Amino acid sequence: MIKNLLRQYWARHPAIELMDDEVADRWTAKWIAQGCDFKRDIVPVVRDFCAMKPYCGPPVGFQELDEHVARNRARHEELSSGSCTATGSQSFDHDCHTSFPAPCEMPYAAAQGS
């Protein structure tokens, strides 16, 4: 599941193809066992990771996503308990949303080989 999601953002990237399928499935199963919903908690993390680091490629390992998936799940739990307010029109709440490290420093031209 997670490898297919990563492929949506980085098609045919060698790092994704080298990821072990069983390891990928174990990470997905771990997140789901911890109470994560794939579409609600995992997909947004990968999408946000891609938006922050589009030229850096996919995460090196699933550990890089793990903390953010847990934080996103906790944020949704807070929203459902009423301790973090967000309206239905807010797709990105800066006070409650998972944040990643600074975007990749690689400029677009360098990524294109110019």
Rank of each mutant, 00 (worst) to 15 (best):
H13V: 06
P54I: 10
G82Y: 03
S114M: 11
H94N: 07
L65C: 01
Y108C: 10
A51G: 10
P14G: 01
P59A: 05
C104N: 14
V46T: 04
W27L: 05
A29I: 03
G35Y: 11
Q90T: 08
D37L: 13
C50I: 02
P58R: 04
S91Y: 15
R73P: 00
G82F: 03
C50V: 03
A110T: 12
V45L: 02
F62Q: 02
N4M: 07
L18S: 12
I16S: 08
T28C: 15
R75E: 12
K39S: 12
S91F: 15
K39Y: 08
G82L: 05
H68G: 14
E105Q: 12
W27Y: 15
D93T: 08
A15K: 10
A11F: 06
T85E: 09
E64W: 08
D48T: 11
Q34A: 15
G82T: 06
M1I: 13
L79R: 03
P107Y: 07
A29L: 04
A109F: 04
D41H: 14
D20N: 15
K39I: 08
P14E: 03
P44S: 05
V46P: 01
V23D: 09
K39H: 15
F100I: 14
H97P: 00
P103D: 06
A15W: 09
Q112C: 09
P44I: 02
E17W: 05
I42T: 01
P101E: 07
K3P: 00
D20I: 02
T85L: 13
A109S: 10
W10P: 09
N72G: 05
Y55V: 11
G88T: 11
V43M: 10
G88C: 07
E17N: 13
V60H: 12
R47K: 05
L6Q: 02
Q63W: 12
A110N: 11
Y108A: 12
D37Y: 08
I2L: 15
A11Y: 04
L65K: 00
